[in-house]
């Protein structure tokens, strides 16, 4: 299964992923057209920083998704085959239960439309727009096996800074 992996050390905070995400989820899927036609769109990836390290964060498509567990309308469900946590906009009633539940703050409220928005991992693309747009490789879309256990360990040991 391919996963979006994040290497916070490589993130320069350029926000290109956010822009690419918004473009991919605009009607035209084209930067110029979307801007010229004033298409409404929003990113579902967010570049955050703690002042030292930048972190581009989108829905992690968790194995045990707290959002889908909290969703009382059936709008959020995890697809067992693809591992994606899928969102059905038509079923969303804007109760914000998922917003309350997601431990990553990765779900946004569209308060005007009374629905949420979140990463759909770009169903129309082979590589999600954020990973494709990242100039430094901080966001990568790779087979999970390609990431060595060393690498995983490094993330877990070196990145963790107790505050």
């Amino acid at each position: 299964m391919q996963q979006l992996l994040i290497d916070p050390d490589r993130c320069l905070g350029c926000h290109s992923c956010e822009l690419a995400c918004a473009v991919e989820h605009a009607l035209s899927k084209d930067l110029f057209a979307a801007v010229l036609n004033k298409e409404s769109s929003a990113a579902s990836i967010f570049v955050e920083t703690d002042g030292e390290t930048n972190l581009p964060l989108q829905c992690r498509h968790c194995q045990e998704p707290a959002c889908a567990n909290a969703c009382m309308s059936g709008a959020l469900q995890r697809d067992a085959e693809t591992g994606k946590v899928l969102f059905n906009r038509d079923r969303c009633v804007g109760c914000w239960m998922c917003v309350m539940a997601c431990p990553f703050g990765a779900i946004e409220q569209d308060r005007g439309q009374k629905v949420i928005s979140k990463c759909d991992r770009c169903p129309d693309r082979e590589v999600p727009a954020c990973a494709g747009a990242c100039p430094t490789g901080a966001i990568k879309f790779v087979e999970i096996a390609e990431y060595s256990s060393d690498r995983r360990k490094r993330y877990l040991t070196e990145f963790v800074k107790e505050r």
């Binding site: 996963q3 979006l4 992996l5 994040i6 972190l55 964060l57 992690r60 968790c62 431990p103 990553f104 999970i144 990431y147 995983r152 993330y155 877990l156 990145f159 963790v160 800074k161 107790e162 505050r163």
Partner: peptide, 10 residues
């Protein structure tokens, strides 16, 4: 940090 494992899907 406390959820790092999940963030990185590892």
């Amino acid at each position: 940090n406390s959820h790092l494992g999940t963030v990185l899907n590892v």
